[in-house]
Each structure stands twice: as C-alpha cells, then as structure tokens.
Nucleic acid binder design. Structure first.
Length: 424
DNA sequence: TCTGGGGTCCTAGGACCC
DNA sequence: TCTGGGGTCCTAGGACCC
C-alpha cells in the first residue's frame, strides 16, 4: 500500500499557524508582487475565489468578506514543510517528498500496531500527530498504487464524512465512486487528455480503469497506459526516497513595475543568475549552457516582444560570475529598445554532476552504461565479426532488447535527453 | 493600475552510425 | 564481405504536475 499525505491549503495554513485567531476563517495568500491568489482556505474557496486569479479581480470580493490577505513568505512555508516531512519520516518506513506540501509513503510490509489492515487508524494517527505537533491540517489517502493513493486523497478532501482519511483497500467497493468521478481528477490526466478521452466516450475514472492498457498505449502514450494499470491496482511507478538532482534550474520573476532600460534588465537577470547558481551549487552540479528570456506583457498595448536565447559556457561551471557574464552577453545581443518589459528569467541547462576538472573515463562510461556497453559490443563485433557477442537472457537475443525491455510500461524510461532550451 | 514560478516526462522526426 | 534494421543523439514541442 501507498499513502499520500497532502497539506490542506498549504500556504494559507502556514499563515494560520502564527495567527490562530484566523482559524476557520477565509485566508488567502498572494504570489510575488501580490499579483495572483496562490492559496486559499476552504472558507475562502466557499466565497468563490478561484486559484491563480489576479488579485485585482477578486479584491472587492476579499474586502467585502473581510478575508485575511497575506503576501507570500516562501521561507516560512519551506520551514513548516520541513517539519511536516520530518514527522512523516518518524511515522512511516519510507517517504518520498513529492512537493512542498505532499509526500508519498511506501507501506509495503509495514504493519501498524501489529495489525495488517489497520490503515484507517494509521492515517488518522498521521493526521492527528501532524496537527498536534505542527498545527498543519492534512488529508491522507491510502491505496495499492500511487495513482490510486492520489485519488483517495482527493476523495478524502472532498468528502466531509471521511474526516480527511480515505482508504481504498478493496477496489470493488469504490466502483460506484469511480463512476461519478470525472477522468480529469486522475493524476496525469489534464485538460487536453480529458478532451481526447471524451471523444472515445471515456468520461469517468471507471471508464478509464476498464480500458485495455495496451490499446491506450497505442492510441495515446506509455504514460497514460501506466495510469490505466495503476488504476487497476497494478503498481507501475517507482518510489524515490532520495530526491534526484534537478536536470535544469530556472529562476523567473515578473517585475513589480515595467522595466524600460537595458541596465535594469541586466540587473534583474544578474540577480536571478546569482539565485540560480546558488541552487546549482547546493546540488553540486555544473551548468554547460545558459538560457535567458525577457518579454513584454500580453496585457499591454502594442505588439508583444518575446526574446530568448541560449549559449554554451566555455566550460561547465557553477560559479556566479561566468554564468552572469554570459547571461548579460545574451541580453545585450537580444535587447530591443523602447519596450516596457514585464518579466525575465534565466535557465541553467545541460547540468552535469562531475567536477569537469577531474575527468575520469571510467566514470563517464559508468554514467552512461547503455552507450558504453553498445560501443564495446560494436568494438568487439568489428574485431571478431558481426554478432559475435551474444547478449541477454536468451542466447541470440539482440543487445538492443535490453533497451526495449526497460521501456515497457512497468518501468519509467531512464534516458530522456535534457532539452537544451526549455523556456516559454 | 494590477495577471505565478517553478518543474517533469514523453514523442516525433532528422541526421548519422554500425 | 556487405547490407540495412535498428540503434544513438539531438531538438522542438506537447502534456502534465504543484
């Protein structure tokens, strides 16, 4: 079994920890520069305040209902999150932190109070512990796969009867609910997929659950076929306790006021470059390329300007100076005068984990076993004749079969290439 | 007047290689 | 010995997540 523990209206709940007088009242947290609503308590939701809504559009509503409004304080949210995650590690054998407000628990082989099917009690224990120790309200979903645990968590949030806990041990018992849940509530099914599925008359969770996963793989993708199998109770997603290093690091902001000069723009990107290289050093990586962009707002008059460029660093680095220097060069080459810029950003790409000054051929081969192996096979074949290397479980099986095998729906593909430029 | 800031994985297709 | 099926590597772009 897996559990998904999710903080309720995370940022808003964090603010309430320090303002107990705001318990059970509508609270809203705004994004950087107070641009958008990014979190709201259920009382605020009930007033009809949508998420990611421009502040100015809902301001009158917030004032009318005397909603408490906070500017965001990400340091605080990070602190509270860390305390929740520490508690979870004490409560469960294996924890995968999925986002600032969510974590999966792997409960395979785990027994609560020496009892095997005591999941409801366990989940309730998690809830009350986190509430008592941190004053953070959470919901818990428990199910045989991660995708189902997500769904269970969703149900736990929606249904008042369940008291924030939903356990899906016998899937047959839930078919009635699955028939009522629209397909886009499933983790991995967004707006676009939902629309395409609807054409095939697949509208509910139950509709998707009962599809043939191979057919879905042909018509859609491996990802969706995995989702189908997960919904059937077949575990297809890995569990990563140790968070892997980021493959790209991006820092973007919209400005408080429009920027109109090259100097100002360079300043913003220098600042983002510093933040980005800090993140890079924290995970001990080196960037090989820098990408920057800046743009005017879609909401402003005139034709919209969007400029973006990517260049390779002379050598892989996580030092602020070469990164910012290159970023500034790119800006200078792309800058368009007489515009009112609305936001900019920097991306550090093609990250490598090895110290570029300590090249080690053996390590490189290890780091990409597939390539290394295939090169070796080719070398031997060239010397001793084609197909002189037999490989795989069955003699005569082609070496490439290994790769195909790893691409089966039960495993995630491990060698997607890092896109060079990945910024809007 | 005022509209978030990050990430991930997958696919398709072209050039090239063995 | 030679072909060619099927790899690699790369990029753009789409879709998804919180």
């Amino acid at each position: 079994m897996f559990a998904l523990v999710d903080c309720n209206s995370c940022y808003a709940s964090c603010e309430q920890i320090f303002r107990p007088d705001l318990r059970n009242k509508p609270v809203v947290v705004l994004s950087n520069n107070d641009g958008c609503v990014v979190a709201r308590t259920k009382e605020a939701k009930a007033l009809g305040i949508p998420n990611i809504e421009p502040y100015f559009k809902v301001r009158h509503l917030l004032e009318k209902h005397k909603v408490a409004v906070f500017s965001s304080n990400y340091e605080l949210y990070g602190d509270v999150s860390a305390r929740v995650m520490t508690l979870l590690r004490e409560l469960a054998p294996q924890v995968e932190i999925y986002s600032i407000d969510e974590a999966f628990l792997d409960l395979h082989g785990f027994q609560y109070h020496q009892m095997e099917h005591n999941w409801r009690d366990f989940a309730t224990h998690i809830r009350s512990t986190i509430w008592q120790q941190v004053r953070m309200p959470v919901c818990v979903g428990i199910a045989p796969t991660k995708t189902l645990a997500k769904l269970a968590n969703h149900i736990a949030k929606k249904s008042k009867k369940l008291n924030g806990v939903c356990v899906m041990d016998k899937l047959e018992d839930w078919e009635k609910v699955f028939r009522q849940l629209p397909v886009n509530k499933i983790w991995g099914v967004g707006r676009n997929l939902a629309a395409r599925l609807s054409e095939l008359d697949i509208h509910t969770v139950q509709d998707l659950r009962t599809q043939d996963s191979q057919l879905i793989q042909k018509q859609f993708s491996v990802s969706l076929s995995r989702t189908v199998r997960e919904l059937q109770g077949i575990n297809c997603l890995g569990f990563n306790e140790v968070p892997s290093n980021k493959q790209q690091i991006v820092v973007t902001r919209s400005f408080g006021e429009r920027i109109t000069t090259l100097e100002q723009l360079k300043e913003t990107v220098s600042y983002y470059g510093r933040r980005a290289s800090e993140k890079l050093r924290r995970q001990n990586s080196y960037a090989q390329a820098v990408s920057i962009f800046f743009e005017t707002s879609v909401h402003d008059k005139g034709t919209r300007v969007f400029r973006q460029g990517c260049r390779e660093l002379a050598y892989p680095s996580n030092d602020t100076r070469p990164i910012v220097e290159l970023a500034v060069q790119i800006i200078e080459s792309l800058y368009v005068h007489n515009q009112r810029y609305y936001r900019s950003g920097i991306g550090l790409l093609d990250l490598v984990d090895t110290n570029p000054h300590q090249h080690n051929l053996w390590d490189e081969e290890q780091s990409d076993k597939t390539t290394g192996l295939m090169q070796m096979v080719d070398k031997i074949n060239r010397r001793f004749g084609r197909d002189s290397v037999l490989f795989g479980r069955n003699a005569g099986e082609s070496p490439w079969a290994i790769k195909r095998e790893l691409k089966s729906p039960d495993y995630t593909t491990r060698w997607s290439s890092v896109p060079k430029i990945k910024m809007r």
